[in-house]
């Protein structure tokens, strides 16, 4: 620890003070990781920073980042949602059936899909908070349940995502539409977490649930509300993704999407133990995952070794992240 502190406390110059100022931000450590990765891939492959590749990269990270915005809120208040990847898959199907079988306008169909997702969140929250089943188990149950439901109603076949081309473009088909949605949601959720009573009480519930209750915070309301939020964001991400691809796939999302969102959250500095986390960190965490995946792909890494490299890279990024976080704390003390 002292070995890390020494160079910081020794330098009173402008550079050192700038470094301190930067390290004071929670997200500082993961931003450093992201920048180093981008530099590495740009040096190793000249195709990395090109319009086409940035578009690919943005499309890869958008959905996990949108979901991470909800998952971060849940993790902060001490819960987790494993089922959100399945909500991601079922939501565009609900929209599809409302638009085609019921003939509803596409906007209404989409709102119904989001509302159904909200109900799934409500069920997750109710079982967890009121019936006292740990959220890991509750959402493990609903994960399988929703997946079965999606496969049943779709009969396992993909369908064309409904709606006019203009609507599709806005919702995700246009090149950067998906990442714009993601950034808008990140911006809103950042303000919600940092600047509203809801965000403050979410941190309070995860940080010390007894103290939160003693100060009069409605703990069940906060927890159930964040389950609803996560499901709705999962559904929205699923719909946006369905518009980008143009096809609604019953096998989209799933546990892979959920783990990407949780990984983005945790890499971004959100504690799995609850009580702390950042939305911006989730965005940068998603970026790191995307850069790793995309960078190694254009470097032409063999698909078989790919997961090994991704796994190792995640571990190295996390070790680096945690140690820069220690530097940050040392910086704060000054």
């Amino acid at each position: 620890m002292s070995a890390h502190q020494q160079p910081l406390s020794a330098g009173p110059g402008i550079a050192a003070r700038t470094l301190h100022g930067f390290l004071r931000f929670r997200e500082a450590s993961i931003v450093v990781v992201a920048i180093l990765l981008i530099i590495y891939f740009e040096i190793s492959n000249s195709n990395f920073i090109t319009n086409a590749n940035l578009q690919t990269l943005s499309q890869f990270i958008s959905a996990p980042v949108i979901i991470a915005c909800g998952e971060i809120m849940l993790l902060i208040c001490g819960e987790i949602d494993l089922s959100v990847g399945m909500v991601f898959a079922i939501a565009p199907f609900i929209m599809y059936f409302c638009a085609t079988s019921l003939g509803l306008p596409i906007i209404i169909a989409m709102l119904i899909a989001l509302a159904v997702a909200g109900c799934i969140g409500l069920i997750n929250g109710f079982i967890t908070v009121k019936l006292r089943v740990p959220s890991f188990v509750t959402t493990l149950g609903t994960l399988f349940l929703i997946n079965g439901l999606t496969l049943t109603i779709s009969k396992g076949f993909p369908v064309d995502t409904p709606g006019s081309p203009a609507f599709a473009k806005i919702m995700g088909a246009a090149g950067y539409a998906e990442i714009i949605w993601a950034v808008i949601i990140v911006a809103i959720m950042h303000v919600v977490l940092r600047n509203t009573r809801w965000g403050l009480h979410t941190i309070a519930v995860g940080g010390n649930v007894l103290a939160a209750a003693e100060s009069g915070i409605n703990v069940p309301k906060i927890k159930i509300g964040n389950f609803v939020l996560t499901s709705v964001l999962g559904a929205f991400a699923g719909i946006v993704e369905a518009y980008r691809i143009g096809s609604t796939d019953p096998l989209a999302g799933g546990t892979n999407m959920m783990f990407l969102a949780v990984a983005a959250s945790v890499i971004g500095g959100t504690s799995l133990m609850g009580g702390s986390g950042t939305i911006i960190g989730g965005l940068v965490g998603g970026l790191v995952l995307g850069v790793l995946q995309d960078g190694f792909t254009i470097d032409g890494i063999n698909a078989y070794t790919f997961d090994m490299i991704i796994g190792g890279a995640i571990l190295i990024a996390m070790v680096f992240n945690i140690h820069v976080a220690r530097l940050r704390r040392a910086g704060r003390k000054l």
């Binding site: 403050l200 309070a204 995860g206 940080g207 007894l210 103290a211 939160a212 003693e214 100060s215 009580g275």
Partner: peptide, 8 residues
Amino acid sequence: DLALIPGL
């Protein structure tokens, strides 16, 4: 126990 929230 002071009823404080460590992360705030």
